[in-house]
Simulated scan of single mutants.
Amino acid sequence: MKIDKNVWTDAKCAAFRVEFLTSREELFLYAKAIYSAIMWSREVNEKNRIIMKKNKSVK
């Protein structure tokens, strides 16, 4: 899987804004979780878009 650099940068920036992280490792793991969530939501949005397109073509 190729990493989307723009999304990774956004995830790191979001992780930097969190105050409860105490170490570099926690920051990296939190950024990785945010990145995964963003990528998952893109996949879900694409699937929903395809479903909606098929539903409109049937009606």
Rank of each mutant, 00 (worst) to 15 (best):
K32F: 02
A37S: 12
N55L: 08
K53E: 15
M52I: 13
V18Y: 08
W40Y: 11
A33D: 09
E43T: 04
T22V: 07
V44E: 05
R17Y: 04
A15E: 00
M39I: 13
R49E: 13
N48F: 08
L21V: 01
W40N: 14
S23H: 03
F20E: 12
R17H: 07
K53H: 13
A37R: 11
S36K: 09
I51L: 11
K32L: 05
E46C: 08
R42K: 09
N55Q: 13
I51H: 06
Y35F: 13
L29C: 13
S36E: 13
E43L: 07
V44Y: 03
A15T: 00
E43G: 04
C13T: 14
F16E: 15
A11N: 00
I51T: 10
F28R: 13
A31E: 00
N45H: 10
Y35Q: 02
E25C: 06
Y35V: 02
A31H: 00
T22K: 09
F20Y: 15
S57A: 13
A31Q: 00
E25A: 13
I34E: 03
D10Y: 03
L27C: 01
N55H: 05
W40V: 11
D10V: 03
E25Y: 12
E43H: 11
L21F: 02
V58C: 13
S23R: 02
Y30S: 06
R49D: 15
E26K: 04
M52C: 11
K54N: 14
S36F: 03
W40M: 10
L29W: 08
K32N: 10
A14I: 03
D10N: 10
K56H: 05
N48A: 11
S57L: 10
K32V: 05
S36V: 02
R42M: 08
Y35H: 04
K12T: 14
K53W: 09
T22H: 07
V44I: 05
E25I: 07
R49W: 08
K47W: 06
E25S: 12
V44D: 09
A33Y: 02
V58I: 14
F20T: 09
F16W: 08
M52G: 11
Y35I: 04
L27W: 02
A14S: 11
S57D: 07
E46W: 05
L21I: 01
K32Y: 04
M39E: 15
E25G: 11
I38C: 02
V18Q: 06
E25W: 06
S41E: 15
I34M: 05
A11P: 01
D10P: 02
S36G: 09
A14F: 03
F16I: 15
S41P: 05
N45R: 13
K47E: 15
S57V: 09
E46N: 08
I51A: 07
M39C: 12
T22A: 08
W40L: 10
I38R: 00
I50S: 06
F16P: 03
R24N: 11
V44W: 02
N45E: 14
R17K: 12
A15M: 01
A15R: 00
Y30P: 01
W40I: 06
I51M: 08
I50A: 11
I38V: 06
I51V: 06
K47I: 13
E26N: 03
I51N: 07
S23Q: 04
F20Q: 10
A11W: 00
K56E: 05
R17L: 07
R24W: 13
A15I: 01
R42N: 14
K54W: 07
F20R: 10
T22Y: 08
R17F: 02
A11I: 00
V58F: 12
S57Y: 03
L29Y: 09
